[in-house]
Design a binder for these strands. Structure first.
Length: 802
DNA sequence: CCTGCGTGTCATAGC
DNA sequence: TCGCTATGACACGCA
């Protein structure tokens, strides 16, 4: 741990140097105070929340960081970098959208969330497809995290692949891309230069030995908090990735630093290269921009693993990974723009910003759980907005675990948004009152807040933030609970939702399609019937089942006259029955051994009545095979049903098929034509009765099965609807959060611009704004809310824009 | 030998 | 009343 701290310190120093070189102002405090996991881990030691992240692997890629100058991989690395730069020069919207689309294809069809194992492969493929241009063919997912945004994204997700959270990936990617796209050419060039210098300095080659890193990651991977399924999925995912070997790993180097930070633990020093990456990731929007999205990105990846362990004892946490909603690009950008707006508004309130961060650290304990927990929970709001992970537009995933998702973000929140963080420290209930009532003071302005501000931001290493990390980490868990309650989701609800969504994955339905499932044939029949229920051809062919092919036309007309229950339906089913090859068309039905060829025509049987169709008989594939080995007479006997044998024994002059299927009138005419004995007539009537009943039974069973399937589908649909409604609910909650944030920022803006008669600003700790019933806003002393006091409340009308 | 499944058949209700 | 369908119940064969 000590050496980690040492590296951390060195890294900060180098980082600061880099910042000075590039001329960018960096608010290190924001990183520290927001618990950037790697930093916190370095300081506080590895927590269970972070141990699973494959930080080592993150650094173990071929993106160039660890490549020896003489390494043959270097050329490849530079090529990768060049390609990535080209990609990054593309329209920022185009690439993410493509990725999202890919994602939609895989995720949309069903609400399969529980099947993390299923989603994982798709994730891998998607990623590969989405970043094909950027991918280093030799790169593996579990590589070093120093590379570009895409790379980091994948690396991180490789570490926590068990989460099955694809959405965040895309989001992170987008965020990183968006952020990095704004790097100027000079920045990139400078980064390149420094980076090459860094390479020349030489990083240990062994550091980049992938196999070693992988072993390390393997050791780190298991976590007691993670359920078995998650672990399995994770392994399978990683394995798949490794096997593919062409994982989307960005060879680009100068991108998101935060991803690298995890690697600090295994790194001998914080290289300039990393600092540059961090810098690049930190200020993608330019110096003035404090937009933290790139910083958040890596942590989200980490958060996926953090969530389970961070929220120990919380049933919500473990399943989170599977429910990560995919991100909607448009919404994401909307969020980004909204954040930019907020930032623009906060420019005037820099004092408050910095102050808030310090306040959160120092006063965290004094304010006890209430303050801390709510502060964290509200921070999640900020993070959500920054990352837009909650914007999932896909019904399949996003609907799954909205609350959990938020918690996940909460646990990993590192967004350097001190101001909002602080301002939102009030709990939601208070916020609710905000909209309807008057007092804004206690909600938005912490009592300790004062306008005198410190310039901590430029200070690289601050003891205060460090000391507060532990507190905040502990409060993180509390915030999870608080947020859960705030969102109106109890843990039980969340778990229930999770369970239901798991079951909603369609596995139950799929089980009926298992190859060995006897019902598969029925399913296939029903599906065929339903899919082609309007096809007249099918209904015609359905009649063929009761006749030889040569007589299809004749029986066809007769069949039409039979009528009865759902002609089309039954015919279709019969059609399915008669053609066993149809079942083979479905892969999952290959192993069906049952004979459904009820009505397969007996080819050229009944030589005594060649002009008549052979009645339906039990003719299985096995029978066909046996027929080659048996004499024709035995074959006939065996192929014939009991009624057919009886008919032959009684010398019935027409086929059972006609007996059964002829309309009553024609049937009676047929009987009248032939002079039959009483026994023959009785047998014929029995044959007809039994034959019709047999078909009826088949229809009945089919219908029964269909009913079951429909009910199952209904359940599935209902679950999907429920999940969708929950998703909508979360979206509403999110919008409410945004409104709260806007309210906060507006409050800040208004309050900080207020001046008393002497031109001095009102101290936030002493004054607060209150709404009046007519929409006006009053500034009142905090101590006095009831009676009027010496200071005359200054009345100020302000437009409220929301 | 037991079990599950598919199928055929019977009895019966209902149209 | 007849013919037919639908369906529960049972038996049988098979794996």
């Amino acid at each position: 741990m000590l050496y980690l701290k040492k590296y951390f310190t060195e890294g900060l120093i180098q980082f600061t140097i880099l910042l000075s070189l590039i001329g960018v102002r960096v608010d290190v405090d924001t990183y520290l105070s927001n618990q950037l996991p790697p930093l916190r881990e370095i300081i506080l030691g590895p927590s269970s929340a972070y141990t699973q992240t494959q930080f080592h692997n993150l650094r173990n890629t071929l993106d160039g960081y660890g490549i020896h100058p003489k390494s043959v991989d270097l050329d490849h690395f530079f090529t990768t970098r060049r390609l990535l730069n080209q990609v990054r020069q593309l329209d920022r919207l185009s690439v993410p959208s493509t990725e999202l689309n890919t994602w939609l294809v895989h995720r949309d069809p069903e609400t399969v969330v529980s099947a993390a194992s299923q989603s994982s492969p798709s994730i891998t493929l998607d990623n590969g497809a989405g970043l094909e241009d950027v991918n280093n063919p030799d790169a593996t997912p579990a590589m070093r995290g120093g590379g570009g945004a895409p790379e980091s994204t994948y690396n991180l997700n490789a570490a926590d692949s068990s989460l099955g959270a694809v959405a965040p990936e895309g989001n992170q990617e987008q965020g990183n891309r968006a952020g990095n796209d704004d790097l100027t050419k000079e920045d990139i060039d400078l980064i390149d230069i420094l980076w090459r210098q860094d390479i020349d300095l030489g990083a240990g080659r062994e550091v980049f030995n992938y196999s070693n890193r992988q072993k390390e990651s393997e050791e780190e991977k298991p976590s007691p908090q993670e359920n078995k399924e998650t672990t399995d999925t994770q392994e399978s995912w990683r394995n798949g990735v490794n096997l593919q070997g062409a994982q989307p790993v960005d060879g680009e180097t100068g991108e998101s630093i935060p991803e690298q930070l995890p690697g600090l633990g295994s790194q001998t020093s914080l290289s300039l290269q990393e600092c540059l990456r961090l810098l690049e990731a930190t200020f993608p929007f330019g110096e003035e921009s404090e937009f933290p999205a790139p910083v958040v990105t890596p942590e989200i990846g980490v958060s996926n693993e953090e969530a389970p362990s961070t929220s120990q004892g919380l049933p919500l946490a473990p399943p989170l990974p599977q429910a990560e909603p995919p991100l909607d690009l448009e919404q994401q950008w909307q969020d980004i723009m909204a954040i930019m707006e907020l930032q623009a508004m906060e420019v005037n309130n820099t004092s408050l910003n910095t102050n808030s961060s310090s306040v959160s650290g120092t006063s965290g304990t004094a304010e006890s759980n209430t303050m801390g927990s709510f502060g964290l929970s509200s921070r999640s709001t900020l993070i959500n907005q920054d990352v837009s992970l909650h914007q999932a537009s896909l019904p399949s995933c996003s609907q799954d675990f909205p609350p959990i998702f938020n918690h996940q973000l909460d646990s990993s929140s590192s967004t350097p948004r001190p101001t909002m963080l602080r301002l939102s420290s009030s709990n939601s209930s208070n916020m609710n009152s905000t909209f309807g009532a008057t007092n804004l003071t206690g909600l938005f302005l912490p009592p300790l807040m004062n306008s005198s501000n410190t310039n901590i931001t430029s200070t690289p290493i601050l003891p205060d933030p460090f000391s507060t990390l532990l507190e905040e980490s502990m409060l993180d868990e509390i915030s999870l609970l608080d947020l859960a309650m705030e969102e109106g989701f109890s843990q039980a609800q969340a778990s229930q939702l999770e369970d239901e969504l798991d079951s909603d994955s369609g596995l139950s339905l799929d089980s009926s399609h298992s190859p060995a499932s006897p019902s598969s044939s029925e399913t296939s029949c029903s599906s065929a019937a339903s899919s082609s229920s309007t096809s007249a051809t099918f209904s015609e062919e359905g009649a063929v089942g009761y006749s030889t092919d040569s007589e299809a036309a004749t029986v066809e007309t007769e069949e039409g006259a039979v009528g009865g229950y759902q002609p089309g339906y039954s015919k279709l089913c019969r059609m399915s029955y008669q053609d066993p090859s149809q079942f083979h068309s479905l892969p999952q039905l290959d192993n069906i051994s049952h004979n459904h060829t009820y009505n397969l025509p007996l080819s050229s049987a009944f030589s005594e009545h060649p002009e008549l169709p052979i009645s339906a008989g039990k003719k299985t594939v096995r029978d066909k095979q046996n027929s080659k080995l048996q004499p024709p007479q035995d074959l006939l006997e065996k192929q014939s049903s009991r009624d057919e044998r009886r008919a032959r024994a009684m010398k019935i002059p027409f086929s059972n098929d006609k007996i059964i299927n002829l309309p009553v009138e024609e049937f009676n005419e047929l009987l009248a034509k032939h002079h039959l004995s009483e026994a023959q007539l009785a047998l014929i009537r029995d044959i007809r009765r039994r034959g019709k009943n047999k078909m009826a039974a088949q229809n009945c069973r089919k219908r029964k099965l269909d009913t079951i399937l429909n009910l199952e589908q209904g359940v599935h649909d209902l679950r999907r609807d429920k999940a969708r409604l929950l998703k909508e609910k979360m979206e509403f909650i999110r919008s409410i959060r945004q409104m709260k944030q806007k309210m906060q920022s507006l409050y800040q803006e208004v309050f900080t611009q207020l001046r008393d008669e002497e031109g001095r600003p009102y101290p936030p700790s002493e004054y607060s704004l209150q709404y009046s019933a007519d929409g006006s806003v009053l500034i009142m002393p905090r101590s006095m809310t009831t009676a009027e006091q010496n200071r005359k409340p200054e009345k100020k009308q302000k437009d409220k824009k929301k």
